[in-house]
Amino acid sequence: MFHGKVIDISDDKISIDKAQLFITSEKCGASLFFVGTVRNHNNNKNVTGITYDSHDSMVEKSFLEIYEEAIKKLTVEHPVVFIEHAKGYIALGGISIVIAVACKHRAQAFELSRYIIEEIKKRTPIWKKEHYDNEKSSWLKGNVIIDNKE
């Protein structure tokens, strides 16, 4: 089972309760929540918040691809995955991403969760603009997208 969505925080919010409800399954003995939040420093600068930009349809397509790839590559039983990523301005401490996974065993849940977040970082079209206490802001350098499907 899979759920993957971009949440525009101007009209909705990321909810861990919603994630928990989605992944709850009697077949699974392990549930794991990865929660990404905005921290107050990066590269020796004082961060006050982050604006996330996203190509929504590509992001949701990418989440599904990563999920399908993960369950093919990894040995996971009864996987249930919930991914939501924020779009818009998030203040310090605010949630930018939730990846909730449930599997039969804990080792599988850890492996699956780690795989998903690392792949999202590498290839999902989401961008961060950091805002600093000196009122400046800058887009963070990211990973170059290379399409190797053709």
Binding site: G36, Y52, S54, H55, M58, V59, H85, S96, I97, I117, I120, K121, K122, R123, T124, P125, I126, W127, K128, W139, L140, K141, G142, N143, V144, I145
Partner: peptide, 10 residues
């Protein structure tokens, strides 16, 4: 078309 600069969410 859409331009997709280097990415980095999370």
């Amino acid at each position: 078309l859409c331009i997709i600069p280097p990415v980095g969410g999370g």
